[in-house]
């Protein structure tokens, strides 16, 4: 399963919370350019996996290698600077800033240190121009000067993706980007993800099976923190163990 050229390689990842095993000897590999979906029933440890990849939670055992380097012990910010970008399951943006400020902040994070006290950041074309371009890319160009808190839920989720993209990531970690969205908003998000396909490497957690099977190059199925199967969508669909453990008991779409 392990490919030598994989961008992200997770090996033997284990995390316990008291008696609950959230990640159990978990291994997976994501090669460059792939959309890799992680699915599994509630409580399978999907968000815990993302949190460990992003550096928010320390694993008890196992290693995380990214672009050839061991990240296991690096803090969150250092991982982000190496090209791991994340969207949160519960929208996490700068609510009091404008949409443009939100994205410009993400650009700034990857434009050298910020111990710059004099020049006005809000009129710095090095930050504002790429930020505007990315807002346009996710379809928020009309919303640039709105306070983020006043955007609709779907727009806030788009903004979150825009912030992740603005860090020029090598790998996007998307934790249920469509959580809480209406039908129309979801469709817009799927459209956005489709545009990113092939250009970005993405590890995505998603409940909507239609979306997962339509978008993902490969899928990993988590149950109780274990990866019970990894494969192409058709392989996963055909996998008896997966059908029994997950798809069979709940064939929601």
């Amino acid at each position: 399963m392990q490919r030598p050229d994989a961008l992200l390689e997770v090996h033997g990842l284990t995390k316990r919370f008291g008696g609950i095993v959230a990640s159990d000897e978990l291994s997976l590999a994501v090669p460059e350019g792939e959309i890799h979906a992680v699915i599994g029933p509630n409580g399978a440890g999907k968000t815990t996996l993302i949190a460990q990849l992003a550096g928010e939670i320390r694993p008890d055992a196992g290693t995380i290698r990214f672009a050839g380097a061991d990240l296991t012990h690096l803090p969150m910010a250092a991982r982000a600077r190496r090209g791991l970008a994340r969207s949160f399951q519960i929208t996490s943006i700068f609510r009091g800033f404008t949409a443009l400020d939100n994205v410009a902040m993400a650009i700034q994070a990857h434009d050298g240190h910020s111990f710059r006290f004099w020049a006005r950041a809000r009129s710095d074309p090095r930050l504002r121009e790429p930020a505007r371009a990315i807002l346009a890319e996710v379809g928020l160009d009309g919303r640039a000067d709105m306070i983020a808190a006043n955007l609709s839920h779907g727009e806030q989720r788009q903004l979150e993706i825009a912030m992740a993209l603005a860090t020029r990531p090598r790998l996007l970690l998307l934790d249920e980007p469509m959580a809480g969205m209406g039908r129309e908003e979801s469709a817009r998000m799927v459209e956005l993800l489709r545009r990113l396909k092939g250009r970005e490497t993405i590890l995505i957690i998603e409940h909507d099976m239609d979306v997962v099977f339509a978008l993902a190059d490969r899928i990993t199925v988590l149950v109780y923190g274990r990866a019970i199967a990894t494969g192409r969508p058709d392989e996963i669909r055909a996998n008896a163990e997966v059908r029994q453990a997950y798809l069979g008991e709940d064939d929601h779409a």
Binding site: A54, E56, P75, M76, A77, A78, A80, R81, A85, R86, F88, S92, I93, F94, R95, G96, F97, D101, M105, A106, Q108, A109, H110, S114, F115, R116, F117, W118, A119, R120, A121, R122, D124, M163, A164, A166, T167
Partner: peptide, 27 residues
């Protein structure tokens, strides 16, 4: 000047959402 500078925005970003700041790469 400081508040409107890059440094100032980082400080205000930390007030708004420190976890987010770290997630986009700010120590």
């Amino acid at each position: 000047r400081m508040i409107e500078s890059r440094f100032g925005l980082v400080i205000q970003g930390c007030r708004e959402n420190e976890r987010r700041m770290q997630a986009i790469g700010f120590p």
